[in-house]
């Protein structure tokens, strides 16, 4: 019996292997030429992804971008309590504004609801972070009337006066005169703090004093105006308005 090896290859095997060879070379050709290299090339696909990611548009301009044009605000903020905040934390992404400042205006968060995002009391916040109860802390007034947004401080409240005039201090703090220092209306020599009854601070003497801010020619923008000649003309202002808690209605 002839060995298996030397038997002539059966017709069907030859054909099948021929077909298979054709198929294999076909696949090879398609892979090598028809399919774009970029489909298979990992190096290319990593590179193109890195490039695509690296070139995405940048919307935030970054902390350095504002200095050039808004030096005042940058300087003010750098020295204030908000020094750790970025300009864009409050004003939003500024990439477009930096490219064309007149075309794209930035939003400024002038209302209470923005400050409250960070400053509303919350038991989860780290203790020591300055927090307020928005419902009780001077409600209805925009925060920026009392606190400068770029360098906020609790508004100037000479603690020395409060030490002895606590009630006046607390009254004034919730009044429309909250932002006025005691010294805006009283010249208080330092000696007054040592010998208060001997050295007395000044007190406003006449209607014109209040008229500085409330008269028609006043430069105080926020103060409501009255006509000094006609408004309660026979009396001193504080005979009707308590100066530390003035009411206008």
């Amino acid at each position: 019996m002839k060995s298996l090896l030397f038997r002539p290859v059966p017709e069907q095997i030859t054909r099948l292997s021929l077909a298979f060879a054709l198929l294999a070379s076909g696949v090879f050709l398609v892979r090598a030429h028809a399919i774009p290299q970029t489909w298979l090339d990992r190096e290319y696909h990593v590179k193109s992804t890195l490039e695509r990611e690296a070139n995405r548009p940048r919307r935030f301009a970054g902390a350095q971008a504002c200095t050039e044009c808004h030096e005042d605000q940058v300087k003010e903020k750098a020295e204030g309590n908000h020094r750790t905040l970025a300009c864009e934390t409050c004003h939003g992404a500024a990439g477009k504004h930096v490219e064309d400042p007149t075309e794209t205006k930035l939003f400024a968060p002038r209302l209470r609801d923005y400050c409250v995002l960070c400053h509303a009391y919350d038991p989860s916040r780290p203790t020591g972070f300055p927090q307020i109860n928005p419902a009780l802390h001077n409600p209805l007034k925009p925060c920026i009337e009392c606190h400068k947004p770029h360098a906020p401080v609790p508004p100037e409240t000479p603690k020395e006066c409060a030490a002895c005039h606590g009630e006046i201090e607390r009254t004034k703090a919730v009044s429309s005169h909250a932002a006025l220092a005691c010294t805006a209306c009283h010249d208080a020599p330092d000696a007054h703090k040592v010998t208060p009854r001997l050295v007395r601070p000044t007190k406003p003497q006449n209607r014109e004093f209040c008229g500085k801010c409330h008269g028609p020619k006043s430069e105080e923008k926020k103060a409501p105006r009255v006509d000094l000649a006609a408004h309660g003309e026979r009396y001193l202002c504080w005979q009707c308005h308590y100066p530390h808690l003035p009411e206008g209605k």
Partner: peptide, 23 residues
């Protein structure tokens, strides 16, 4: 998250780091 790859490869900070008020 890509660590803001388009920013950090250009020496800018990621947006979240940029705006964090307390570092």
């Amino acid at each position: 998250c890509t660590f803001c790859y388009h920013r950090t490869t250009r020496d800018l900070l990621p947006a979240c780091v940029e705006v964090c008020p307390t570092s």
